[in-house]
């Protein structure tokens, strides 16, 4: 087994060029579990913990740029003011220990249907920046995640950044699970109300193979909302919740049934929207 420990992005992509099929190691909170249980037998690893460039983040200007190594703890503290919805999502991940180690790049790269930051990133229509020795390319998250734990990353590539346009307006994150801590979501919801573009955008986690955008529900409520008062009729809120639940593609597994998940989507859609409106 070979472990590369680059300290710069250039060194990291060079290491990957030398070992294109190497496993990428960031916070280790998914990777090491699989190694510990013998489900993954890495022969080549590129460890990204030391790559300083990947740790930076910027919320200046119109674009938010998050380095792939930004941890959940950083999202929860340093970015709470700029990105309250993402900070709230980060706060629900695992435990303090997990949040100190786990990274946003890891969450995107693992692409679990239950990845807690993914609904927010889907709602803000984030781009995933992939770096390789040949340069960088940028893919919308919706194109990057191709299925449950499946992505469009190519051999020799690593996730360097996640970026998206800054959005002004209320943000919500809701998660249903058996506890408040250390829980993989049964279902979760991120909502971003873009008051400048007059658009409600939301996405649900753990109710489809990929983060689910209920576009019909979004179109409906974006049209139905009274944007000057930031208010909506009760009927419209109900209709929005119905449409969101109808868009879900949940499965039954050990964490919950498809019926329950669809029910939670309806409840969360209504709750997230209601919390975003001016009472």
């Amino acid at each position: 087994m070979t472990v590369a420990r680059p300290t710069t992005l250039d060194e990291a992509v060079d290491a990957l060029a030398a070992m294109p099929d190497a496993q990428l190691l960031a916070g280790g909170t998914d990777f090491m579990v699989e190694v510990n249980f013998g489900h993954r037998r890495p022969t080549e690893v590129v460890a990204l913990r030391r790559v300083a460039e990947l740790r930076s983040h910027s919320t200046d200007g119109d674009e938010i740029v998050l380095g792939a190594n930004v941890t959940y703890s950083q999202l929860q503290t340093e970015l709470a003011e700029a990105l309250p919805g993402l900070a709230a999502a980060a706060r629900t991940v695992g435990s303090p220990q997990i949040r100190n180690a786990g990274t946003i790049g890891g969450n995107v790269g693992t692409a679990s249907p239950a990845g807690d930051t993914l609904p927010f990133l889907a709602a803000v229509e984030a781009d995933v920046v992939l770096a390789s020795a040949g340069g960088t390319r940028c893919l919308p998250l919706a194109d990057f995640i191709t299925g449950a734990k499946q992505t469009a990353i190519l051999p020799g590539e690593l996730i360097s950044e996640v970026r998206f346009a800054d959005v002004r307006g209320p943000q919500q994150f809701l998660k249903v699970g058996t506890r408040n801590a250390m829980v993989i979501s049964i279902a979760c919801c991120a909502m971003v109300v873009d008051i400048d573009r007059r658009r409600v955008r939301c996405a649900f986690g753990s109710v489809a193979a990929r983060p689910l955008r209920p576009t019909e529900a979004e179109d409906f409520i974006s049209e139905a909302l009274d944007w000057s008062a930031l208010d909506a009729e009760a009927d419209a809120v109900d209709r929005f919740a119905e449409l969101a639940a109808g868009a879900a593609e949940p499965i039954t597994d050990h964490r919950g049934t498809a019926e329950y998940r669809r029910h939670t989507v309806k409840v969360m859609a209504r709750r997230a929207l209601t919390r975003s409106l001016r009472a």
Partner: peptide, 8 residues
């Protein structure tokens, strides 16, 4: 603070 089982 981290969990050492998840550190390589």
């Amino acid at each position: 603070l981290v969990v050492s089982c998840c550190v390589l």
